[in-house]
Every structure is written in structure tokens, then in C-alpha cells.
Amino acid sequence: MIPGKELRVHPIRDGTVIDHINAGQAMNVLKILGITGSSSAVISVAMNVSSQDIKYKDIVKIEDRELEDKEVDKISLISPNATINIIRDFGVADKHRVELPEMVESMVKCSNPNCISNTNEPVTSKFEVKKDPIRLRCIYCEHVIEENIAEHLI
């Protein structure tokens, strides 16, 4: 085996590899995917791995599952450089970087307790997404979320 190239986790036959996750965000990615200690899915998580592009990164591998668009959008909010690799029969069937949507709906809870979207009105939360750094602006009360976005994900 070539020094420095040892495999930390085994390749998977089918599933998804989420790479280039911002270091420290892997657990939030699992939360987005609804993966808890009691789920039966086979998961591998690598944290604080050296990376040429972003110095340190996290990686999540999920066997036998491909992500839904909404899940990918949520991951983009906490890790805009993440890449999604779809694995089929040990090969990479598709690889793409997550894309920040311009607007997210029903994904983030407004942190303003007095916002109309936090009442019993028949509306879902909607946020405009600004890049560099990521800022979410509630389209109702215009409150801005720019820190700890993961905590506000629905």
C-alpha cells in the first residue's frame, strides 16, 4: 500500500459519498439526513481529514441511499463546497458539487420568535439565500440568520 494513501473506510457498492463537508459539520449532515443512533443504515463518517482544497474536511458515506434534492439543498446551507458522489456498483455514477439555492422553503425556522411564520398561520418559512458568507433573510420579517445555520434547520 502506498504510504499516506491507506483507506480509512472501505469503498461502498451502492449509496452516496458526501465529500468536502466543512470540518465539524458531519454530525449536522447526519441530522439533516435523519440518521440517528437507532437507524439501521450503514454509515461511515470521517472527520477533520486533510484536504487540498479546504485544509480539513469531513466525509460521510451512506450505503444504499441516494439523497433527495431537499436534503442536498440543506447540506449546501451548512457546507457550500460539499460534493455529492452517487455510487452504483462500486463506481461513481454521478458527481456534482452542491448548489446554493436562491430561495429555501420549509427548511429553516425563523429565529425571530415574533415572526408571522412562527405562528399558526398557514404559511411555511421562506428565506432568500445570499452567498459569501451565507446569509439567510426571512422573506416575511426580514430577520437575518448568518451564524449556526444548522441549529435552525427544520
Binding site: N112, C115, I116, S117, I139, Y140, C141
Partner: peptide
């Protein structure tokens, strides 16, 4: 006039 922030934006919908 309403006590919740964003109420007018929602009302417009």
C-alpha cells in the same frame, strides 16, 4: 396593523 413581524408580507400573499 398587526403585532407579528412579517404579517403584512404574508397578508399580501
Amino acid at each position: 396593523r398587526h403585532p407579528s413581524e412579517g404579517s403584512a408580507r404574508m397578508a399580501a400573499e
